[in-house]
Design a protein around this nucleic acid. Structure first.
Lengths: 164, 164
DNA sequence: CGATGATAGATGAATCTTCAAATACTTCAG
DNA sequence: CTGAAGTATTTGAAGATTCATCTATCATCG
């Protein structure tokens, strides 16, 4: 039985610790400046970025990586707080369309720049262009392998070809 | 206002999504094969790896990245389940030493190889040696910056003194 | 058509995490 | 030596997530 090599162990611990820390710090910033969690921001951003600014629960669950149940509870809270609305999908009445309210669009417009600035400062300011690319490459490679093995669904943004 | 560059955006999404997926899958494996969560494994491993196989709550909190409160609750559950014991530190009676029970040492001995195998398979099998090193390097660089800015405490394993 | 099995989502209970105190001990200033 | 301030940890309640289950809809086939 062999343990991980020193490099692998650093990569493993570094990956988990760094991702967790960055998410935590982003959360703190969003919470402090706009009173919303990172989760809320991610969900709203995902809905906003989808064509027609509306999206099925299932797709949203895939994009955000949340379980259906978790997403359902989260969307229920967002609906209660007046940030999204749900409408039954006309073509498939089992499905549900999630739609941003104008309050949410407003919030997103105000929060996005500060959030991007925070991510830049915390995650990318210390990295050279090459290191950022290497990070993107390594994580994309792992993700692709997870998708190929059927462990995870594909994420458009992480597909091998670059876009703009 | 500028958004992230395509590379940065891929690195950002990739980092968060990959870390979350890997942790989730590791958790599933540990849960299925040994009935313990990833969190439990991490805590037990951290205690086991510390000199004397005993550690203060505060240090453990730093190593695992959990808040003190969360750790306190988690350790209480582990104690209830017979995996750790707590003893008051003799030199500073505010402090608490956490100690593994023999059941926990046993569990860890049995679970470690399978866990390592899972991590290898999911995270490092698809990566070349260079990509693993690049991942370690990028995350270490970010972590160092977070430490320098006072956002996070240093982690010994991520200190820069190693290969590279 | 009506039964069968799959899919999308919602729900409640149990579990876990977070947040704001509370407790207990230590340190230091006066 | 006393009290004030700081440190290490715990606690309880509120909020979030998970797990198993439930409802409603769809798709297929006889």
């Amino acid at each position: 039985m062999d343990w991980l090599s020193p490099t692998e162990q650093q990569a493993w611990v570094g990956l988990l610790a760094t991702a967790s820390a960055l998410q935590h710090l982003s959360d703190r910033q969003l919470q402090a400046d706009f009173g919303i969690s990172f989760q809320t921001y991610s969900i709203l951003a995902a809905v906003s970025d989808s064509p027609g600014a509306t999206i099925h629960m299932g797709e949203l669950s895939g994009i955000t990586g949340h379980s259906q149940s978790r997403l359902s509870h989260a969307i229920a809270r967002l609906e209660r707080d007046g940030l999204v609305s749900r409408t039954s999908c006309p073509s498939d009445k089992r499905g549900v369309h999630v739609l941003l309210t104008s309050a949410a669009r407003d919030l997103l417009r105000r929060a996005a720049p500060a959030h991007v600035t925070t991510v830049r400062r915390l995650a990318f300011a210390p990295l050279t262009e090459e290191k950022s690319a290497a990070l993107a490459d390594a994580t994309r490679t792992i993700w692709k392998s997870l998708v190929d093995d059927g462990h995870m669904p594909p994420i458009t943004m992480l597909d091998s070809n670059n876009d703009s």
